[in-house]
Amino acid sequence: MRCPYCGNEDTQVKDSRPTEDNNAIRRRRACMACGGRFTTFERVQLRELTIIKTNGRRVPFDRDKLMRSVQIAMRKRPVESERVERMVSGIVRRLESMGESDIPSQVLGEMVMEGLRTLDDVAYVRFASVYRDFREAKDFEDVIGELSGPEDIPG
């Protein structure tokens, strides 16, 4: 494993343990050249996944990119990082178990929306505003209406 600090390829594993959800191995490493310490995660990858964007472009699936977009939606929300990690791992498992290597971006987006809806309403609305490309306040009202349901709307 290459050191992220100096680029040296001679690093040593100091500690290994499974993550809380047992879906990855967490390894603490030390660089033999500069002494820098860092953590890596090792996960099982069942198949190479490709995301097909709405414009037809094909990009390799990137779990880290998915995690970053979910973390942006979850920023400053009172949700434990372990719950977010479990949600992302669940999405990845569902994608891998679909039996397809090519996944439309809409399928991934809907899975994320479904997961966020169970975790945090604010994060759900934040993600929806970007994913569905909101243009006006009514777009927010519609999504908030989805969350509250017809029985909760005064009238």
Rank of each mutant, 00 (worst) to 15 (best):
E114P: 01
T118Y: 11
A123R: 00
I52W: 03
V122L: 06
M87T: 07
T54Q: 14
L108T: 04
P104G: 04
T50N: 14
M113S: 02
S101C: 03
I51H: 00
N55M: 02
I91G: 11
V59M: 11
L119I: 08
A73W: 02
S101H: 08
V79E: 08
R75V: 11
V107Y: 09
I51T: 04
K65S: 12
M87G: 02
K53R: 14
V88Y: 11
R75M: 08
A123F: 05
V88N: 04
P104E: 10
R75H: 15
T50F: 12
S97K: 05
R83E: 09
G109C: 10
L119N: 05
L108P: 00
E85P: 08
R83D: 11
S97D: 10
L119A: 00
V107F: 09
E100S: 12
K76I: 09
G115I: 05
I72V: 13
V92Y: 06
T50R: 13
S101F: 05
P60A: 14
R86D: 03
R77V: 07
A123S: 12
G90P: 08
M113I: 07
E80D: 15
M67T: 12
V79C: 07
S129D: 13
I52K: 09
R63S: 12
I51K: 06
D64A: 14
E100Q: 12
Q71Y: 13
V125H: 01
E82P: 02
F61S: 10
Y124H: 06
Y124F: 12
V84I: 15
T50A: 11
R126L: 05
M87P: 05
T50G: 09
N55I: 01
P104Y: 11
M74D: 02
S89I: 12
V59S: 02
M74Q: 09
G109L: 05
A128Y: 00
M87K: 01
E100G: 02
S129V: 07
S101R: 13
K76E: 12
K76P: 03
V122T: 11
T118P: 03
Q106F: 15
R93A: 15
R58N: 09
P78H: 08
M67E: 14
M98F: 13
D121R: 01
I51D: 00
R126G: 09
R68S: 13
M111W: 06
E85I: 13
V125F: 01
L66T: 07
R117N: 08
V70R: 07
T54E: 15
R117C: 07
M113K: 06
V107P: 05
R86P: 06
R86V: 05
E85Q: 15
E82V: 14
R126Y: 08
S101D: 03
K53C: 03
R86F: 04
L119G: 00
G109M: 01
I103T: 03
L95A: 02
G99N: 06
K76H: 11
D120F: 07
R75Q: 14
D120A: 01
Q71F: 15
G115W: 01
D64N: 04
D62H: 05
M113Q: 01
R83M: 13
V88E: 10
